[in-house]
Design a protein around this nucleic acid. Structure first.
Length: 507
RNA sequence: GGCGUCAUGGUGUAACUGGUUAACACGCCGCCCUCUCAAGGCGGAGAGUACGGGUUCGAUCCCCGUUGACGCUACCA
């Protein structure tokens, strides 16, 4: 069987696009990037921009994440027309509230034979994978329970044995059109019998995204390139339901300096970080608009007599409304753009300098010098100053961007630099995984210290040195909480990164 | 390993989709301004368009191959 699709005739159906972030952590720059493209696409066509929360992974769910996503997107000016907070005609917009819908749709697939129940345990599947890897075979579900007899299925069901529902991928191949690249074909040998519904009753991304996109009348799926490989599964699902297929646009992935997919280990990716570190939303959204092209050069309409528009202000600097009028999806470049902090900072500087003195002052008061921030800091130092003028002596590290302790400050006596750096890396891992509260941080760090035979003093001193640049500071944990998780983690990562470079140049 | 995608200076982009000394911005270097540092102004180095073949009078642009990078290969998204 061969599936091939043509672009649906949606010329007179209203354009509807969506972003579907997953509330599994801090809001991500990649979400903002894809959000921006979707936003522009909708605004340019009088379409609707929908926000849908993909919270089907209960193991990675982070309770505060959804609010942070809302906040960050609004901060950037990417406002949506329908979403969990706004409602809309095709809600609910939170997938965890749509489980009954998915369950019904899975029944449909089970009934028409395009899906089946599989009863293997995760352990069995892992064992299968190991065997395949050992035999140098591509790790893939072997379709073991594809032809379970009805008798067998009923027996398992009667036992109450947990099961997943898998897609029954037929032989053949699927071709779909990517609006930016043209036709892409996958042989079904390379398409797994994907799990559609997990044993906890929640759908996987693949099922939920297809069902929701259809039910929400999404006309254009604009998402990141990493989804190309699973698009055949989605096409197969649309076909299994007998639904029309939306247009697919796969945007290039944002990259680290080394060209790998952007990641927190190598680059700040949290939008919270950028907000707290004092980046202006105008600069951030402008910078994102620079990624992947899409903004045509403004020189086209100039006559030769005029000097070409060579000022950076005419080529690299533009607002969100500018993008709505000028951005062109057909101009998008497919090479993965490096998210270059250096240029972002330059751009941010341009925006800061363009502010009126009043606006600049207000920006400071709204962020780095906000009452809320200062109010949290004050109690940390009250007993430690003798004059108010000493405020800065003790809080410098909370207002500075570059903190780098000299080696004699951060290396504990009786420890080598290698030990200290290795332990700091462990601290980073622990901090990443810990809730940002005193009650969670203290035992987590102490536990690490015990495991590695580091005294509490050595342990906390090292972290203090990294964060404050000094051996003397307000209480460590409280300071970290005030400073914020994303900036604290960034500081530790930058410390490790710098020390690694230093070590390399010494060799 | 398999499958897929991509490829213009260090980085982001431009080059009427075949005709340019390959342009602009960031970064870097130098000079000017200046009490310092920024900002600003001026100038400079840095790619011959991953490589190799075609097609063409002519390829950054079209075709093929190679290489490299990246992504996917989960009861994660």
């Amino acid at each position: 069987m061969t599936n091939s699709i043509s672009t649906p005739d949606t010329s007179d159906t209203p354009i509807r696009v969506r972003i579907a972030p997953s509330p599994t952590g801090d809001p991500h720059v990649g979400t903002a990037y894809i959000g921006l493209i979707n936003y522009l696409y909708a605004r340019q066509r009088d379409g609707k921009f929908v926000l849908r929360i993909e919270d089907t992974d209960r193991t990675r769910f982070v309770a505060t994440s959804e609010q942070e996503i809302f906040h960050s997107l609004r901060w950037l000016g990417l406002t949506w027309d329908e979403g969990p907070d706004l409602g809309g005609p095709y809600g609910p917009y939170r997938q965890s509230e749509r489980t009954e819908i998915y369950r019904q749709h899975v029944e449909l697939l089970l009934a028409n034979g395009t899906a089946y129940r599989a009863f293997e345990t995760p352990e069995e599947l892992e064992a299968l994978r190991q065997r395949q890897i050992a035999a140098k075979l591509p790790p893939r579900y072997d379709g073991g329970h594809r032809q379970l007899s009805q008798l067998q299925i009923d027996a398992y069901l009667a036992e109450g044995r947990p099961f997943v529902v898998r897609m029954k991928v037929p032989a053949g191949q699927t071709t779909f059109r990517d609006e930016l690249r043209g036709d892409i074909t996958f042989d079904h040998n390379n398409v797994d019998d994907q799990v559609l519904m997990k044993s906890d009753g929640f759908p996987t991304y693949h099922l939920a995204n297809v069902v929701d996109d259809h039910l929400m009348h999404i006309t254009d799926v604009i998402r990141a390139e990493e989804w190309i490989s699973s698009t055949p599964k989605h096409v197969l699902l649309y076909n299994a339901f007998g639904w029309a297929i939306p247009r697919f646009w796969h945007m290039p992935l944002l990259r680290n300096l080394d060209k790998s997919k952007i990641s927190k280990r190598k680059n700040p990716v949290s939008l919270i970080y950028y907000r707290q570190a004092g980046f202006l939303p105008e600069a951030m959204i402008n910078f994102l608009g620079l990624m992947g092209g899409g903004m045509p050069a403004p020189t086209a309409e100039l006559t030769p007599a005029q000097p070409a528009a060579t000022k950076s202000s005419e080529t690299d600097i533009f607002t969100l409304p500018d993008m709505v009028t000028r951005f062109d999806v057909k101009n998008i470049r497919l090479g993965g753009p490096v998210f270059d902090l250096t240029k972002l900072k330059w751009l941010n500087g341009e925006y800061i300098r363009a502010l009126t003195p009043e606006a600049f002052y207000k920006a400071l008061r709204d962020t780095i010098l906000s009452d809320a921030y200062l109010q949290q800091i004050a109690p940390l130092i009250q007993t430690r100053v003798e004059t108010l003028g000493e405020f800065g002596n003790l809080t410098h590290f909370l207002f500075a961007d570059d903190i780098m302790p000299p080696s004699e400050v951060f290396i504990p006596k009786k420890r080598t630099i290698e030990d200290a750096l290795a332990f700091a890396a462990e601290q980073l891992t622990v901090l990443e995984a810990t809730d940002w509260t005193h009650e969670a941080l203290e035992p987590a760090l102490k536990q690490l210290g015990e495991a590695q035979q580091w005294s509490v003093k050595e342990n906390f001193m090292l972290l203090r040195a990294i964060l404050t640049g000094s051996t003397m500071s307000p209480p460590l944990l409280e300071s970290m909480i005030v400073f914020g998780k994303s900036r604290t983690l960034d500081r530790v990562r930058r410390f490790l990164e710098t020390q690694k470079k230093l070590a390399n140049t010494k060799k």
